[in-house]
Design a protein around this nucleic acid. Sequence first.
DNA 1: CTGAAAGCGCTAACAG
DNA 2: CTGTTAGCGCTTTCAG
Lengths: 339, 339
Amino acid sequence: MPPKQVNIRALARELNLSVSTISKALRDSYEISPATKARVLALAASLQYQPNPYASSLRGKKSRTVGVVVPEVADSFFSLAINGIESVLKAAGYHVLICLTHEQLDNEKGILQEFRNGRVDGVLLSISRETADAGHIRALAEQEVPLVFFDRVLDEVAAAKVVTNDYESGYAATRHLAERGCRDIGFLGISNSLSISNKRMEGYLQALQDLGLPFRESNIVACSNDLLSNYRTITKLLQRRHRPDGLVASVEKLTASTYQACRDLNLRIPDDVKVICFSNLEIAAMLQPSLTTITQPAFEMGKAAAQLLLKAMKGKDVRGGDVVIPSVLEERGSTGALH
Amino acid sequence: MPPKQVNIRALARELNLSVSTISKALRDSYEISPATKARVLALAASLQYQPNPYASSLRGKKSRTVGVVVPEVADSFFSLAINGIESVLKAAGYHVLICLTHEQLDNEKGILQEFRNGRVDGVLLSISRETADAGHIRALAEQEVPLVFFDRVLDEVAAAKVVTNDYESGYAATRHLAERGCRDIGFLGISNSLSISNKRMEGYLQALQDLGLPFRESNIVACSNDLLSNYRTITKLLQRRHRPDGLVASVEKLTASTYQACRDLNLRIPDDVKVICFSNLEIAAMLQPSLTTITQPAFEMGKAAAQLLLKAMKGKDVRGGDVVIPSVLEERGSTGALH
DNA sequence: CTGAAAGCGCTAACAG
DNA sequence: CTGTTAGCGCTTTCAG
């Protein structure tokens, strides 16, 4: 049975070698004879030697760890994006430290503050719904910690960004509803500082205008991060005398509340209200009715962001290299297609 | 603008103090005068001093980090459990390092191997579907790294466990289908080494026996980790001459495949086949038809596991303190209730 | 080819 | 109350 904590010195003692020889052998240095290397490697394997990561990081000033800062993990988009990120970074020998802001700016600030002294070699960030100001993000940039935004970006920060075509998707969603006969389309936003929400909304507004549909201020509602309050907000919208006959829900989280509100108000989807959601729900086709979605390329966005970050961590300037990966409109029952 | 990397020595130089005085002041030691503390804290704040975590960890032999090893994050159960874990550990000042096995034993081994030299102070583990042998887990235990299992446990390892009542839930699911008129009930398992799958199946078998329902070997099918292959497996089961009139799906991942298979075969749920799934899908009530679920207390299980681990990391022996938190059967349309 | 020694940033004896 | 010093485990000159 191997001893409790086997370190490089234990190996050295055992083989009557110096610690530096061991270290070099383990790192396959050309300075070490093949015979010695073999002996060292054999012993290391038999004792299940595992280098202390903190010692290496302290010494080498690099952690081989990337911080991934996201609002939430209980969300199809982010969990798929994380899978994409992980697939790339793991192959490149990096660890992934997932940090959750729970949509709160204070948490985000705290996490980025912690990243200011070498904990991570780079950061992938999707900002919280509360994040409007870039102070804490710029502070990171000042420490020269490589940073790549994905999905929820802050335009004013000069860092690489991987996004989807939010504006076009908002436009396409709205046009789709119009083509399906909607004349009075509502937009469910999630934050008025969030790039994705705003761009999707701008697409929505432009589509209304291009299609000659009326714009009503009251058709745009701001949702929160609380399920019940979103349910109430949507219910109120649908109880109005002139209720919308179509809804664009700008994030996945609003799906359940929207469906529940319609059900409780005895509004039939798609007959009374048509619904399209930005969503990566795997089960969208099985909803009642099946849900027309704008599906984001979550996994691919994660991969692309990780790849950009790898480049940035190698010292390349990637700030110009923004990536846009388009979303896909999947037509289903909630906008009146046969399921 | 603060300098690039501000460390304790920079603070010391600036204030004409020694590094140890700074260190003590920052840790609010009784040895330091209030006046000095104030000066140090003020400077640290103004320079946004952030201690190097690797130096502290190396020195103190503790990382204030917990490793959370799960099969997958794109899954309602695990993402909610992670939220529960994080809520407890963050409050206790720990970091959470989420590691994904993607249901592969080799990944799990690699991750636990890495945990053998101080990277984490404790581990929360939910094993992969491939994990049958406990060697790599016992190896961790030998290094005296505190470990708590949650949900997917390995009975043969002497470590604390937080689980739900899998046997009773399998029993309850089966009885529920029987009460709804099913006479020929199938069971969709996910692995025959996995505790949860086996216990749920034992409950299923016992219920069949107690209720005098026939047991057919062929009614038990083993699913994989691949969506398409699961879809084919379930389709084949439902195409048999004597196809089941009820299905117990033992994990959330099987929901979409089951619904899709029924749809493609023109089998109506619940008329032709009744379905109950172990699932934490928030949107279960909005499926077509709404899905009867066994809902696991994911968040609470995560919390309980984290709390146990905190105790274990304080040196307490928690191996006896297993926790069982019951699941809840939510009756909906897929087993014939009015939605 | 191998070894001695310095030092990453921080903490904690121990002295003063 | 403050400072000096040693050392966590590892990597990397620089000497031999």
